[in-house]
Design a binder for these strands. Sequence first.
DNA 1: TTGCGTTATGCATAGTGAAACATAACGAAA
DNA 2: TTTCGTTATGTTTCACTATGCATAACGCAA
Lengths: 108, 108
Amino acid sequence: MRVKYKIWLEDGDRIFSDGLALLLKTIDDEGSINRAAQQLNMSYRQAWGHVKKAEQRLGFALLDKKVGGEAGGGAELTDSARGFMQKYLQFRSEVHDAITQIFKRNFT
Amino acid sequence: MRVKYKIWLEDGDRIFSDGLALLLKTIDDEGSINRAAQQLNMSYRQAWGHVKKAEQRLGFALLDKKVGGEAGGGAELTDSARGFMQKYLQFRSEVHDAITQIFKRNFT
DNA sequence: TTGCGTTATGCATAGTGAAACATAACGAAA
DNA sequence: TTTCGTTATGTTTCACTATGCATAACGCAA
């Protein structure tokens, strides 16, 4: 038996979660929403929708996006997004460690 | 902005969660799956299904159930269920405190 | 001007899980 | 034997979400 959980930040609606963090990181690595979606095995439609919703909720842009041009376009994280990501990942790491430890203490 | 989460125990399939804990406690208080379901605003069908699935997963009975008789029947927690509930509630309490604290530390 | 690889977005469909509906069976008491 | 309030369970309906499809627009390069 093991513990599982989903955790997210919200303010009325869901704002930020692990899936979004992974998506944003992959977009930044790939330089493109499209390639990131392929790599994560999701549709571009879905990836784009997630990012758009999150941006609306957070109230600031997560991606600098370019349409057209040499490579067709592309996207990368804004500075705000990088800052937020860092805080979120730190938070997530601490939560994961805490839950793992508490589970062990109570169920093994 | 605040943190939200769902947490549960599983072993292949989901076996125990907050909703089930509340349901079991309410059944025990009421002495009946039926009255518990009404109080929690869910259908008897749903409540009964949750309990049955959990019992299959856990491998031991959660409820002593009686069909027919003076009051029509009824249900109460088994000793095993009481023991498991206690462990689970302790676990949950510790997790809640930890997450609250970590969130505060990182986002306020 | 044509082609390419993006971002951007509406819409239609499928799939999943919850809720609702319908019955059967039980056993004490009147 | 009838009534009552349970437990027990299959089936059907519904709502919401995820997925897939189709298409427009953009801007650089050849």
